[in-house]
Nucleic acid binder design. Structure first.
Length: 864
RNA sequence: GGACGAUUAGCUCAAUUGGCUAGAGCAUCUCGUUUACACCGAGAGGGUUAUAGGUUCGAGUCCUAUAUCGUCCACCA
C-alpha cells in the first residue's frame, strides 16, 4: 500500500495537479456530455502588467462557481482572454520606450504598434501562467485577445453599422483632454479630486466707463479666451449693467454682459467670465448664446497664438504673468482660498484641460435604436440578476443620466477607426471596414485613414459576443448569453453597463443572465492597496508561501458580493491551517483504518447507532444548505457551513471525541462527501487527497456534487441528536471542571437502553434508573441539590452561582426543544415554564423579569 | 447638491423571509494533549447590535429621525 504523505506539500502538488486537469481536457466543455450549459466569460485583464489580488479574487469566485456547476454535470465554459487596454498600455509602453531612450514619435505609428503588440502578447503569456497558478479551470484553447483579427472585425462592424443607423456622429464639442496622454477622454475616464485652490477676483471694466464688474475665477489664464460675462437674470446687483459692453482686460476685446439662469448668485461675485472653448458649462452657455469659441490653450496645455503675447507659455506660467499684469493695471481685486475639485486623467493623473475638439461620439439615445432606453428596459424587465441586488438600482440611475459617449482617442495603440478621407473633401468621411480603392466622388486613389483609435471600452464592451465568435461561430450559438459574469465593482459603468448596451444592440439579447460584483481588496487598515503606499500583497508570493487553496479561501472568506474586504497574511495563514486540517482528516482515515476507501453509498446497517445517525443526518443538512447557498451565490455562507461541519462536527466530534462509536464505513462515506463539497473552494488539496486515496483514473474535478442521501431519520429527530451530543459534552465538562467523580451525582435519563449505554460510555458516567414515565426526554440533573451545594462549598460561590444559572438555561433549552417529541406538549410547556422560573428565583433570589415572562408567553401563544 | 452602502465582541466579519440562547476566525486567559494534525483539542471571558423614538406577542433584521464613516455620480465660474 502506498504511504500517505505526512504533510501536504502544496508546492509539489499544485503544478502536477493542474497539469493533470489540463491534460485531461475537461476544461473544455466538449468533454462533458450534458445538455445543460454554463458559461462564464472571464473579464480579460489588461495585458500589460502583473496578476494582482483583484484578478485573483475575481478568478477565485468564477472558478468556485464554475467547478460547482461542472460537478453538477453542466457543460462548463470558462472563457479566458486578454485586453489590449488602450490608453493604459500606451502609457506603460511609452514609459518603457523612454527608459530605452526612444519614444513613440521616433518609431512612427506602424513600428510603435508592432512593438507594442509584441510587448503585449509576451506579457499576456506571462499573465496566463500566473492565472493558472490560481487554479482556474478555464479553457485555454479558446483564449481570446481584443486585438485578434476576428474580434476586431466584429467590433469594427458594429461601428459601421451604428454609422449607418445614425447612431454615431463626428462633432466639434468640448471634451476632456489629457495633455500628458495627448488624447481625449470619456467622462468616465476623468476622476475628480478635492484640492485647495485660489479664487481670484478680477475687475472687468465697462467700455467707455469708469465702472467695472468683478468676476471670480480659479483659472485666470482662460480669460484670454473670454467671450462674455454672465450673471443670473434675477441678480438685482447687476440689473443696471445688463446689455452693456465690457472691455476684456489685456486682450482689449469687446465682450457682452449676458444673463443665464445657470449662474449661481451666491458664488463669488455672482458674475462669471465665459470661456466657451475651455470650460464645460461655459461651452453650453456659449452655444445657447451664439458666442464665439476662442481656443487659447492647445493640446500641450500651452497658450496658442490667439493668446496674444502669452503665446507659448504653459498655463501656469501664463497664470502668473496675467495676474502680475492685472495687478499693474490695478484690475486685480483680491484672492481667496477655496476648496475646489480638479479633474485628473484616470490613467496618468495629469490635470485635464477641457478643449473644443473634433471627436467621434455615440448617440446613446438615437432614434433608430436608443442604447440608453433599451438597456433600461431590459434591466427593469429583470433580464439580469444582480449580486448584490442594489447594484441594479445604481446601474439604472447611471443609464438615466447618460450622455453621449466620446469614443475616439488620439493614441496609436488600439483599433484604428475604419474611416477614410479623400483629398477632395476632408469633411466627408467614408465609413467602411475595407480601405476604399478609390474615392467614390472624384476617383482619386489618395485616401488616408482617420487617425483616431477607439476607446478601449468600445471593444471590450462587445466582449460578451465577440469572444464567442459572433455572429456565426458555433460557440456563440451554443454559449450565448452566458450564465455568469463576475467583475470588480469599480468597472460597473465602464464595462458592465457598456456590455449591456452593446449586446442589446447587436445580439438583441442581454450579455449575461447573472452578474456578480466583487469588492475591492484592502489592506489590514482598510486602505486601498497601491504601489505608492507599498501595501500591496502579491498573490503569487502568497501562493508560494501558503498555497493556492489557502489564498483562494482567504479571498472569498468573510465577503459578500459588492462589499470591500480586507486581506493580510494571518488570514491566509489561517486558511492554510484549514487546508492542513483537511489533509490530516484524510490521512488519519487512510492510515488508521485498514483498507480504507471512499464510500459512495452507505449500507443501511452501518448507521444504527446514535452518533452515526447523528453525523449522517448532519451531513445531509450540510449538503442541502451548502448547495442552496451556492445557488444563491453566497460563497461565504456556503463555506462557513461547510467548515463548521468539517472541522467541528466531523473532525473534532465524530472522530476525536466520539472514540467508541465511529464506523470506518461512515468515515469513508462522510470524507467522500466532504472532499467533493470542498473541491470548488480548495481544488488542489481535495484533488490530491482524492488521488492519494482513490488512485484511479477518474478525477475529483469531474465527479458528481453530493446529493442528500435518503434521510435516515425524520428530520425532527436531528435536533434531538444534536442535543444528545451537547449533553454529553456538557457532562464531560462538568466532570472536568469540578474534578469530581460524577457517577453518583450526575444522572441522565435516556430514551431507551441503547442510548443509555451510549451516554454511559461517552460521558463515562453511570446512569441510574430508567424511569418509564419520562418517555423520550433526555435530561441532565445535577443530582440532589444538597450534593451539588457540597461541591459549591469548595469553590468560589459567586462564580458557581453564575455557572449554575447557565446550566439551568441548558436545562430550559433541552426541555423547550424536546417538547415537540412529546405526545402531550401542553403538559411539558407548563412544566418547563414553572420549573425554569421557579428554579431561577429560588437560586438567585430575584424575580423573573417582565420581558422574559412576555417572551415565554409569546412563544406559547403562537404554538397554541 | 443627488444617490447608495455601512455602523454587531479588542480586531476582521456572519446572522439565509422579523422567531429558538446574536455566531465564526484572530487575539487574550484556563486546562488538556506530544504518533492524524503545536498548522492540535476542550473550555472561559468579552455584546444595551451607533443613538433616540415607533410598529410587533417578538426587532440586529421593518419604519422615522440623528450622528459618524465610506463609495459613486453631478457641479464647483
Amino acid at each position: 500500500m502506498k504511504e500517505f504523505p505526512k504533510q501536504y506539500n502544496f508546492k509539489e502538488s499544485e503544478q502536477a495537479i493542474y497539469a493533470l486537469w489540463e491534460k485531461s481536457g475537461f476544461f473544455r466543455p466538449e468533454k462533458i456530455r450534458s445538455q445543460k450549459k454554463y458559461t462564464n466569460i472571464l473579464p480579460p485583464p489588461n495585458a500589460n502588467g502583473e496578476l494582482h489580488l483583484g484578478h485573483a479574487s475575481g478568478y477565485a469566485v468564477m472558478d468556485i462557481f464554475g467547478r460547482f456547476e461542472r460537478m453538477r454535470g453542466k457543460k462548463v465554459l470558462l472563457l479566458p482572454g486578454k485586453d489590449h487596454a488602450g490608453i493604459q498600455t500606451q502609457v506603460v509602453f511609452e514609459k518603457k520606450l523612454k527608459s530605452e531612450g526612444t519614444d513613440a514619435r521616433q518609431l512612427g505609428r506602424t513600428d510603435f504598434y508592432r512593438q507594442a503588440l509584441d510587448f503585449t502578447l509576451k506579457n499576456a503569456e506571462y499573465m496566463r501562467s500566473q492565472e493558472k497558478r490560481v487554479g482556474i479551470s478555464a479553457d485555454w484553447s479558446r483564449e481570446k485577445f481584443t486585438l485578434d483579427p476576428q474580434i476586431s472585425k466584429v467590433a469594427m462592424e458594429t461601428f459601421v453599422k451604428m454609422y449607418q443607423d445614425g447612431m454615431v456622429y463626428k462633432g466639434k464639442r468640448i471634451i476632456n483632454w489629457c495633455p500628458s496622454c495627448a488624447t481625449s477622454l470619456s467622462d468616465l475616464e476623468v476622476i475628480h479630486k478635492e484640492k485647495e485652490g485660489k479664487l481670484y477676483f478680477i475687475k472687468y471694466p465697462f467700455k467707455n466707463s469708469e465702472e467695472f464688474i468683478t468676476v471670480a475665477t480659479t483659472r485666470p489664464e482662460t480669460m484670454l479666451g473670454d467671450t462674455a460675462v454672465a450673471v443670473n437674470p434675477k441678480d438685482s446687483r447687476y440689473f443696471r449693467f445688463i446689455g452693456k459692453t465690457i472691455m476684456l482686460p489685456l486682450m482689449k476685446r469687446e465682450i457682452p454682459l449676458i444673463t443665464d439662469r445657470r449662474i449661481d448668485m451666491n458664488f463669488g461675485t455672482g458674475a462669471v467670465k465665459i470661456t466657451p472653448a475651455h470650460d464645460m458649462l461655459d461651452w453650453q452657455i456659449g452655444k445657447d448664446n451664439n458666442l464665439e469659441e476662442i481656443q487659447v490653450i492647445n493640446e500641450q496645455a500651452k497658450i496658442t497664438e490667439l493668446g496674444g503675447r502669452f503665446k507659448g507659455q504653459s498655463t501656469l506660467e501664463a497664470r502668473a504673468n496675467i495676474l502680475s499684469d492685472l495687478k499693474k493695471l490695478d484690475l486685480f481685486e483680491k484672492e481667496e482660498t477655496v476648496k475646489n475639485s480638479i479633474s485628473l486623467c484616470e490613467r496618468c493623473k495629469a490635470v485635464i484641460e477641457p478643449l473644443v475638439s473634433l471627436q467621434w461620439f455615440i448617440n446613446v439615445d438615437a432614434e433608430k435604436f436608443s442604447l440608453k432606453k433599451e438597456a433600461i428596459k431590459s434591466i427593469k424587465a429583470g433580464k439580469i440578476n444582480f449580486y448584490p441586488e442594489n447594484f441594479k438600482k445604481i446601474m439604472l440611475q447611471w443609464f438615466n443620466g447618460l450622455n453621449d459617449w466620446c469614443i475616439s482617442r488620439q493614441i496609436w495603440w488600439g483599433h484604428q477607426f475604419p474611416v477614410w478621407y479623400c483629398q477632395c473633401s476632408s469633411e466627408e468621411p467614408i465609413v467602411s471596414l475595407e480601405r476604399p480603392k478609390a474615392c467614390p466622388k472624384c476617383g482619386s486613389q489618395k485616401i488616408i485613414q482617420d487617425e483616431n483609435t477607439f476607446d478601449t471600452w468600445f471593444s471590450s464592451g462587445q466582449w460578451a459576443y465577440t469572444s464567442l465568435g459572433f455572429p456565426n461561430g458555433s460557440d456563440y450559438k451554443n454559449f450565448y448569453p452566458s450564465q455568469m459574469m463576475v467583475m470588480g465593482r469599480d468597472i460597473l459603468f465602464f464595462w458592465a453597463a457598456r456590455m449591456v448596451m452593446m449586446s442589446l444592440y447587436r445580439t438583441k439579447n442581454v450579455p449575461f443572465k447573472n452578474i456578480y460584483f466583487t469588492g475591492l481588496i484592502r489592506d489590514r487598515e482598510g486602505n486601498k492597496m497601491s504601489k505608492s503606499r507599498d501595501n500591496g500583497i502579491d498573490p503569487l508570493q502568497m501562493i508560494e508561501k501558503f498555497g493556492a487553496d489557502a489564498l483562494r479561501l482567504s479571498l472569498v472568506m468573510d465577503i459578500s458580493a459588492g462589499q470591500d474586504s480586507r486581506l493580510y497574511e494571518e488570514k491566509i495563514e489561517n486558511y492554510r491551517n484549514f487546508v492542513t486540517k483537511l489533509w490530516n482528516i484524510a490521512r488519519y482515515a487512510k492510515t488508521s483504518v485498514p483498507d480504507f476507501c471512499l464510500i459512495k453509498k452507505l449500507k443501511k446497517n452501518s448507521i444504527k447507532t446514535v452518533s452515526n445517525r447523528w453525523i449522517i443526518t448532519n451531513l445531509n443538512q450540510t449538503i442541502e444548505e451548502v448547495t442552496k447557498f451556492m445557488e444563491e451565490k453566497n460563497i461565504s455562507l456556503a463555506q462557513e457551513r461547510l467548515r463548521n461541519f468539517t472541522w467541528d462536527d466531523f473532525a473534532d466530534w465524530y472522530i476525536e471525541i466520539n472514540k467508541m462509536e465511529k464506523n470506518p464505513e461512515v468515515i469513508g462515506f462522510v470524507l467522500d462527501k466532504i472532499i467533493r463539497l470542498w473541491h470548488p473552494f480548495a481544488p488542489f488539496v481535495t484533488e490530491k487527497i482524492w488521488q492519494e486515496i482513490e488512485a484511479k483514473n477518474k478525477m475529483l474535478m469531474i465527479s458528481e456534487w453530493p446529493q442528500k442521501t435518503a434521510c435516515v431519520f425524520p428530520t425532527k429527530e436531528k435536533k434531538y441528536f444534536q442535543d444528545l451530543k451537547n449533553l454529553v459534552t456538557k457532562i464531560r465538562n462538568i466532570k472536568a471542571n469540578y474534578r469530581i467523580k460524577p457517577a453518583d451525582r450526575i444522572v441522565a435519563y435516556a430514551e431507551n437502553f441503547a442510548e443509555k449505554s451510549i451516554i454511559e460510555k461517552l460521558a463515562k458516567i453511570r446512569i441510574l434508573k430508567y424511569p418509564k414515565n419520562e418517555a423520550k426526554l433526555v435530561r441532565v440533573e445535577f443530582g440532589d441539590k444538597k450534593i451539588f451545594l457540597d461541591i459549591l462549598s469548595k469553590v468560589d460561590l459567586k462564580k458557581e452561582l453564575i455557572n449554575m444559572e447557565r446550566e439551568l438555561d441548558v436545562l430550559k433549552t433541552a426541555i423547550e426543544k424536546h417538547k415537540n417529541l412529546l405526545k402531550n406538549p401542553g403538559f411539558l410547556k407548563k412544566a418547563a415554564q414553572e420549573q425554569i422560573v421557579s428554579a431561577r428565583e429560588r437560586l438567585l433570589g430575584y424575580q423573573t423579569n417582565l420581558k422574559e415572562k412576555n417572551e415565554i408567553m409569546g412563544n406559547f401563544k403562537k404554538l397554541v
